[in-house]
Write a protein that binds this DNA or RNA. Sequence first.
DNA 1: GTGGTCTAGACCACC
DNA 2: GTGGTCTAGACCACG
Lengths: 123, 123, 123, 123
Amino acid sequence: MIHIDYKDKRPIYEQVEEKFQDLIIRGVLKPDERLPSVRSLAIELSINPNTIQRAYAQLEQTGFLYTVKGRGNFVAAESEWMEQKQKIIFDEARRLVRRAANMGVSKEELLERIGSYYEEECI
Amino acid sequence: MIHIDYKDKRPIYEQVEEKFQDLIIRGVLKPDERLPSVRSLAIELSINPNTIQRAYAQLEQTGFLYTVKGRGNFVAAESEWMEQKQKIIFDEARRLVRRAANMGVSKEELLERIGSYYEEECI
Amino acid sequence: MIHIDYKDKRPIYEQVEEKFQDLIIRGVLKPDERLPSVRSLAIELSINPNTIQRAYAQLEQTGFLYTVKGRGNFVAAESEWMEQKQKIIFDEARRLVRRAANMGVSKEELLERIGSYYEEECI
Amino acid sequence: MIHIDYKDKRPIYEQVEEKFQDLIIRGVLKPDERLPSVRSLAIELSINPNTIQRAYAQLEQTGFLYTVKGRGNFVAAESEWMEQKQKIIFDEARRLVRRAANMGVSKEELLERIGSYYEEECI
DNA sequence: GTGGTCTAGACCACC
DNA sequence: GTGGTCTAGACCACG
């Protein structure tokens, strides 16, 4: 269900967090569905439970899931993370545009490039 | 000439590196122009000379400048960093597209958003 | 009669306890009235009987109800929990004042705020 | 500067967090002032550095401080935490009012009680 | 020196 | 069984 890339420089908990964000936003995990328990996922990925714990804590803090002590972690209602969804992707887009503009890359060039990447990605 | 944002999470050397990339690519600094010395820039920005050193080393390694021992650091010929220019911005673009696709953001939505950011940026 | 909020961070037994405190103090449940049995309430709320048991145990311990083995749980006489009523709400108030004072919030500001919350609440 | 109460049921990191919130809001720690380092504070309070780390991480996340890797943690500008200041104290106040209303405590009684607590506190 | 991440292993509260 | 907190100790990146 989830795969960790140790070559990736980003911390593990952030990779886990991102993977679940994707699964939730795309609807693979539905609201009120239960996520794997901290311990079981830790074993499955052979990483420390604390690391999973941290990923889940962040996901709760940003409204993607809610936690019931003694029961587990559950996907939150869509209304809780709608705002975050926007933020995540468009913050990155904004940074990209800023950088591109600073470097003198034209709007047309960037748009065209992104369009073609999209097609490669969806193959 | 250069401003550091301590609230930015990225390391300082990376910020310095990025600033010089921009200045070189946009032609503010011309080929064979001399860059500020490590020591003077370190004093000006009141940061550790090692940090500047590292930024310059990376810029040299990616072909943006060349070093003459005992004389200083100089902007490289355009042919040296043409390739890098592409790489920097389009690598970021690719990552963005990948993430957006994973999250189910449509090509049209992303393109439109980027277009409008461009206009805001250029005001 | 009672509703549990799983998104609430407090433990379930505490929510159940609080709900009954309110019902008893406001007189919705009269002295010597019988409370729902542990088992039936557990089924109704679909939670573990142990959890209800614990809530009832606490309510007994603070004098809100008394238990007759084999017969059930009954609301205690008002004299038994009069003192608690004070304690519950005023302990919280005291903590609030302490925190507010530490943060430099003026007496007037806090009083005014609480007054207006009261009016919102009673709409 | 900071004291931990082991009898308090709340987690240590939360106590530390609260103490610094107070110090910052009351202006004892001024914007851009440096906080004790994670390690030094850990030694001073004889608790694990991870615990301090967590408290600081939360304070950063809520805008009370900003972190510069390799340098330390610094108090953020007032504008960053103005909103939080409101939230902290008035959320607690609101919960109190709700509970009091549920229990049938009159507005006047609560206000009077809070007023008198304020005076005790300021002795 | 600083903060950030991770592991291993423990203990607690809750259900 | 679940999540939450904490410790001890390690390693890394940054300045």
